[in-house]
Design a protein around this nucleic acid. Structure first.
Lengths: 123, 123
DNA sequence: CAGGATCCTAATCGATACTG
DNA sequence: CAGTATCGATTAGGATCCTG
């Protein structure tokens, strides 16, 4: 019958459901990019599209609406000749920047290691 | 003809491609959970399955292999009667914990706000 | 117990075309 | 310019069955 299951020693704070739920803040491949490019100040739809070349208007629009709904970014319509819309990062949205930076840092180290060591393994 | 596109003011460090690439470290909804539950020490396949009830064996197996390939976790086969396998977080894997914590923190604040303020907006 | 094989659903994304 | 609508391709994920 094998080994008995040991109780998890991870302290309760994020008991799994919250974790998954919170991670969905950055759902999709592009949400982190949107947040990143808004970190330096307001940015218009077309500008973001230009910042993130691979993103389609459809997905960018979806992410922006999603992040706005979650309170991570703000939306402001400008009264210009051709109507333009400006997006800004909220205070809460700014708090995600350190997290993104942390992940990027690990990813960078990881790539450096793969090139240095003899254990590629990575895909 | 509208407004000219302003140059992005975000400092170059993670110029987008690296960002997306690094974010894929936590690809999938379950990778963060796997890393989280390994943060307290070695854990066997079945234990992880028990830790993360909603995950299927197929996906857990896929994530474990993926994370192992990236060098974030280690795999060790134990010579027990019914063969068992133990997974551990590597040093690099441990470095992702702060990032996950940061995201969870924002998510928690977000939920608190939704309950407090009058701006649900969220889905 | 660990995990591969198959089948199938759901979410995400890109390209294109079209609207206010 | 700032989107929305539709379609098809890709992919994560779940369920079930099966093997070492």
């Amino acid at each position: 019958m094998g080994l008995p299951l040991r109780k998890s020693k991870v302290d309760a704070p994020p008991p799994i459901c919250p974790l998954t739920e919170c991670m969905s803040l950055l759902r999709g491949a592009w949400a982190p990019n949107v947040i990143w490019y808004l970190s330096a100040g307001p940015r218009r739809f077309g500008e973001l599209r230009h910042d993130i070349p691979r993103i389609s208007a459809r997905v960018l629009s979806a992410r922006l609406r999603e992040l706005e709904g979650k309170g991570l970014i703000g939306r402001r319509v400008l009264a210009t000749s051709p109507p333009s819309v400006e997006y800004t990062l909220t205070a809460l949205g700014h708090e995600l920047i350190p997290a993104i930076k942390a992940i990027v840092e690990v990813g960078t180290k990881l790539k450096a290691q793969v090139h240095t060591k003899r254990r590629p393994a990575g895909k």
